[in-house]
Nucleic acid binder design. Structure first.
Lengths: 162, 162
DNA sequence: TATTGTTATACTCTATAACTATA
DNA sequence: TATAGTTATAGAGTATAACAATA
């Protein structure tokens, strides 16, 4: 069930004059969206071979870290609603990377766990993530990376605990 | 051609224990995606009445600032490819907020401009954006806002010129 | 009643590919 | 040849709504 998509288009290069964005350049939300777009494109190119999206990798990662996690727990941690979570889980299950089990404690919940394929793919994905993050972090000092994560955490509500 | 969607679901509140994100908390891309998601949800709630997306508002704003702009110019400034730009322009044109004119200089290009409705909607949108940005910026000092914009600009490639 | 998972439905964004018209 | 716009197609993410099973 592979995607037909082959190579990802990168935006056309900036031309002289394009820099003038007007007042919109002071809108924080605009910059977050553009940054997410840039990261998304680089991520998708990096993961062409594995054919995984940001969301799918995040989910594999979290299930790997928390075996037997329920979908509702996943949804809260990834800040998604149940229906969206369902869609992502379905895709990963269809590719035999992840499976559902009945939860022993709560009949309403399903416990999620990675298959052998899922563990193997996650391992490859983490290696690719490291390369992708290197591309992303290379423009920042370590202190700037910490600052950026801290500022972004204030927006999405997670506070990394070291 | 209004959307059927009425009210937007917000993610369920965080529970004790959810804070443990494991190694993934050090991934910058993960935080950018979560932050964009939070901003997206608040934006969509704020723009329920106007029924506009982030992309649509950005486009109206840029066309308002640069009348007669061509789609290809818009695409470069918003870091989108032509097909995606086309889709957004089509939606705005279908709602009579924006129109295409043949460009006087270059027969290949179409000049875009806002209709009277478009100008009116943009005006309302800017007022809503100010409220939305206030929500976003309230958690930062002015210096932190500048820092955040500067750091994000290094990712998406735009360097605000004051 | 509340929670969890599920299914059906729909819209936006993003992108590829191929085509036409113009420069 | 290169650029600009267009159309067709498709996958992923996001969401609403309604339902069944369980707590």
């Amino acid at each position: 069930m592979a995607r037909k998509k082959k190579i990802l288009a990168t935006p056309e290069p900036i031309r002289p004059g394009d820099e003038d964005l007007g007042e919109i350049r002071n809108i924080v939300g605009f910059h977050i969206r553009l940054a997410q777009g840039a990261v998304y494109r680089h991520f998708t190119e990096a993961f062409t071979s594995l054919d995984l999206t940001q969301k799918q990798v995040s989910m594999l990662w979290l299930v790997g870290d928390h075996p037997q996690i329920a979908q509702s727990d996943l949804a809260r941690r990834m800040r998604m609603d149940r229906a969206t979570t369902m869609a992502v889980v379905n895709r990963l299950e269809a590719r035999n990377l992840l499976e559902r089990q009945p939860s022993p404690n709560d009949g309403r919940k399903h416990a999620l766990y990675l298959t052998d394929d899922g563990n193997q793919v996650l391992s490859s994905a983490k290696a690719l993530i490291n390369q992708h993050e290197e591309w992303l972090k290379s423009r920042f000092s370590d202190a700037e990376v910490s600052t950026l994560i801290e500022l972004l955490s204030r927006i999405h509500g997670w506070f990394p605990t070291d």
